[in-house]
Amino acid sequence: MSRTLPSDQMRLPLQTDLPEGEAGFVVSDSNRAAVEATEAWPGLIGGVMAICGPAGCGKSRLGQIWAERVGAVALNGEEAAFIDPLELEGRPVLLDRAMDADDETLFHLINLAQAPGGALLMLSRPAPSAWEVTVPDLRSRLDAVISVPMDAPDDAVLAAMLDARFAERGIRPAKDVVPYLLRRIDRSAAAAGDIVGRLDALHRPVTRALAREVLDDASDDDLG
């Protein structure tokens, strides 16, 4: 005999209309400074700015929102070396994993950001002033970059991440699941995605008891 799931634990059809861009980005104390810093920038000023914070804090997502708003060219770490800098002149640029770019590429991108229409938003974990570089002129330029911090997701942001991951998989967890997970998982997008994936793989109603079971199993795996 088949079993009907309770209404607050049922699996829903996979959703394709989840909020994207700014509509799906939760602003809280952990990211407000970075959000406000990018809202009006670059405007008429241009130049260089960095958003810095731990893995999973949402800086890449914020960078994508900024890039879409201003029409920036999006580059990623070491791959930026394969782009002809002259093709970027007069255009805003988003550089994710900026610390992985080589010194020469960084030097050219920072210089191009000073041209009319140019701007460079760099994303990294440590601030540019902490990066190891060998080119003296680059060192002085990085030390002058305005760096805005982002913190690890607080409860509001992490809850939104969990809600989104559950919705993507068509899962409606019991009401006490997300508050329970907030106190027990790492504060990152990766951790939110991992725990929801583990719960989904069991194909059972997502209750607090199941969440505790999965977290206990994960802890045992780490010890093993």
Rank of each mutant, 00 (worst) to 15 (best):
Q64H: 03
A144F: 15
L123K: 01
D200Q: 07
H203Y: 11
G224E: 06
G117M: 06
L95M: 02
W66E: 00
A81M: 04
V135K: 13
Y180T: 03
G24Y: 13
S140A: 14
P179G: 11
G77C: 06
T105Q: 10
R165S: 06
M122F: 12
E20V: 15
L120E: 02
A130I: 04
A167H: 00
A190H: 12
D176K: 14
A113L: 08
R11V: 09
L12R: 13
S219E: 05
L12V: 03
T105G: 07
L86Y: 04
E39K: 14
L88E: 05
L158T: 00
L18K: 13
I195A: 14
R32E: 05
E168V: 00
R169Y: 03
V133R: 15
A119P: 09
D216L: 13
M150T: 02
I51D: 02
A218V: 05
A160Q: 03
A98T: 01
I65K: 04
A119K: 02
D17F: 03
T4S: 14
P13W: 07
S2Y: 04
G43H: 10
L210Y: 10
T105V: 09
P6I: 11
D84M: 06
I45H: 08
P173T: 06
A211F: 12
L158M: 11
R183A: 13
V35G: 02
A218M: 11
T16N: 15
V214W: 12
C57V: 01
L88R: 03
G56N: 11
D96C: 08
A127E: 11
I65R: 09
T105W: 10
S2E: 03
L121A: 05
R187C: 11
E79S: 04
R198E: 13
W41P: 07
A67F: 04
L215R: 13
D151L: 15
A190I: 03
E36I: 07
D176W: 05
W131E: 08
A192V: 10
R125H: 07
V48K: 06
L12H: 09
L202V: 02
